[in-house]
């Protein structure tokens, strides 16, 4: 699958939002719901990795890795409510690790809930979203991927 990773941000967002990193995710302008994390799947051994890599770390094939859109749902492996924040973040904030069905574990900021121990539990369903996750040194919003508790039906 060939994915277009060249993209632009929504023009009307305030304070020049920037992506937290290049090459980690696809985020169509004006339609964050269509965004996804860019992984790679090995056509030979089936291993899926994030971030994408040229060489398959499972079978070491150098030609077999193909870009793949990762699932946007997973289960919470663990999380941390951080009472001290590094530059660009405001305490308290939550980080977590989410296991995707592709057997990939993603480290990300957790949003959409109170930054308390009771708001989350290991094993709960999580949903990926794109939003401002921090600020750079100049104060610009940094747009990245985050997970939030999945909507219950």
């Amino acid at each position: 699958m060939e994915l277009n990773t060249a993209e632009t941000m929504e023009p009307n967002m305030t304070s020049k939002p920037k992506k937290i990193a290049e090459g980690l995710f696809h985020l169509p302008a004006g339609n964050p719901a269509e965004g996804y994390l860019i992984g790679a799947r090995c056509a030979k051994c089936g291993l899926v990795v994030f971030p994408r890599r040229v060489v398959c770390p499972g079978c070491l094939d150098r030609e077999s890795m193909e870009e793949t859109a990762l699932s946007k749902h997973g289960t919470l492996y663990s999380f941390s409510v951080n009472q001290v924040a590094p530059d660009g973040f405001t305490a308290p904030y939550i980080t977590g690790k989410v296991d995707l069905p592709e057997k990939v574990r993603i480290f990300a900021v957790i949003t959409g809930c109170e930054a308390t121990e009771d708001a989350l539990s290991i094993g709960m369903d999580m949903q990926m979203v794109f939003e401002a996750v921090g600020r750079d040194a100049a104060g610009n919003e940094l747009i990245g991927y985050a997970f939030r508790p999945a909507e219950q039906h």
């Binding site: 492996y77 941390s80 924040a85 590094p86 973040f89 980080t95 990300a108 900021v109 990245g144």
Partner: peptide, 13 residues
């Protein structure tokens, strides 16, 4: 870039 915070990484484990 994603808010890595060493005590938090150990807290998760």
């Amino acid at each position: 870039n994603l808010g890595v915070f060493f005590p938090g990484m150990y807290a998760m484990e």
